[in-house]
Amino acid sequence: MSDRREALGPEVKGTRSGPTHRPGQPCTYCHDGSQEQEFSVAGTVYATRDGKQPVQGARVSLKDATGTTFVAETNCAGNFFVRPKTWSPVFPLSTTVTYKDQTLIMESKVHREASCAACHGKVTSRTSAGPIFLWDDVNPPPADLPGGCK
């Protein structure tokens, strides 16, 4: 097991394995095709900067270097993932996240990293831009926002 995989720690107790597990973690550290199925891009979208409330139904639009666009939708954990057989992008990627009329455009391109959380870690620091989030204090999320798995 690689060091970075091991550093993620064990599964949270009571969490079901599958597409809703390990939200906010760098998916492709494990989902690289060696032991787990490969993802070409994967990540998690939250409502606000604190990364507590996932957003279900956010549309993650990814445009690659060839101009091809793929849109993924987040699940109840806020997770999205793309399998290579579905779309195998040529980096760099331009990324936009939308939920209804709320839009977030990523300023920088994604040049090589397939896991959003590798740069958008749960904790904001000098090496991490923090969680991907759609709303802030000035423009708070809607009260009826879905998200969170039952």
Partner: peptide, 27 residues
């Protein structure tokens, strides 16, 4: 960007407003 030369492990390490920051308090 944070996924390229904005990483501390790079020989060519770049600091930038939208990438790796020097001040521990900077984001």
């Amino acid at each position: 960007t944070l996924d390229c030369h904005g990483q501390v492990g790079r020989n060519f390490r770049m600091y930038w407003q939208r990438g790796l920051r020097l001040d521990p308090a900077a984001r």
